[in-house]
């Protein structure tokens, strides 16, 4: 009997967790839908959009640039080591370029921006929620979803691909520097091989991923901040949740996008 009731409690807990998950997903999807609807419907707030674009895009440049530079360099070393086992050291330039543009540029760039931007959005909107500034917006005839959420969603969706594009270039340059400086590649050959192998598809697929990641980053920051619980603790939790959920969603959607863009 005791076993039975314990089992029942266990199953109930699982049921509750599943229901809770469905509910949370539903709420998130609804929030995303409303956010997107406000992106396309006037009134627009171009000044807000520009501010967010600078904040998300421009000020993330150093982080993304440095990440790409070191990743490109490390990638060149690894591929050289791996390639030399098969006497195929010459693949370094092309694989660095493909690896950067298709995978590492968007994913690592996205994760770095998630840490920076999701957290800051969640903290900002969370504080606004807690100090009733979001309520105040409503009483001033301004829809907070339109004024706060829509500009951030749009800015991140546009800014992250641009960041990743710059990151791609810097990453390939990192590979080039290591290739020429440490691995005795000829500079002209390195550049020519890169040019020959890299296709537009490699780059655009990475940028499509980056746009999705940008949307996820802003969405999770906004969602967690907008629904932040009361008090400083609430804001802290919102910030952590935003970074964790954005990072996991980026990695999960990266797999799905890779499946979709490059079917095996």
């Amino acid at each position: 009997m005791q076993v039975f009731s314990a089992l029942q409690g266990f199953l109930a807990a699982i049921g509750a967790a599943v229901l809770g998950l469905c509910q949370a997903t539903g709420r998130l999807l609804m929030f995303a839908g409303m956010g997107v609807a406000h992106v396309v419907r006037p009134p627009f707030y171009p000044l807000e959009l520009w501010r967010q674009f600078l904040k998300i895009g421009y000020f993330s440049l150093p982080v993304v640039g440095l990440t790409a530079l070191f990743t490109g360099g490390a990638l060149a070393l690894q591929i050289f080591a791996g390639g030399s086992r098969l006497n195929a050291e010459s693949v370094v330039p092309s694989i660095v370029a493909i690896g950067m543009t298709r995978e590492l540029g968007p994913v690592l760039g996205g994760l770095m921006v998630a840490g920076r931007v999701s957290a800051s959005i969640a903290a900002e909107l969370g504080t606004m929620r807690v100090t009733e500034q979001i309520d105040a917006l409503t009483t001033l005839s301004t829809n907070p979803l339109k004024y706060l959420v829509a500009p951030r969603l749009l800015a991140a969706t546009v800014a992250v691909p641009l960041l990743v594009l710059i990151g791609d270039v810097i990453g390939i340059m990192g590979g080039f520097l290591v290739g020429v400086g440490r691995l005795d590649f000829n500079a002209t050959t390195y550049i020519r091989t890169t040019e020959d192998f890299l296709t537009t598809g490699d780059v655009t697929s990475g940028l499509i991923k980056a746009a999705v990641f940008g949307f996820i980053i802003a969405l999770m920051g906004c969602y967690q901040g907008y629904n932040s619980a009361r008090g400083a603790q609430g804001v802290g939790r919102a910030t952590t949740n935003a970074v964790v959920s954005a990072s996991i969603l980026i990695l999960a959607s990266n797999y799905l996008l890779t499946e979709a863009l490059f079917p095996a």
């Binding site: 100090t131 009733e132 105040a136």
Partner: peptide, 9 residues
């Protein structure tokens, strides 16, 4: 509306 805590931006 004047909010109790001000709620200034």
């Amino acid at each position: 509306m004047l909010f109790q805590g001000g709620a200034l931006f």
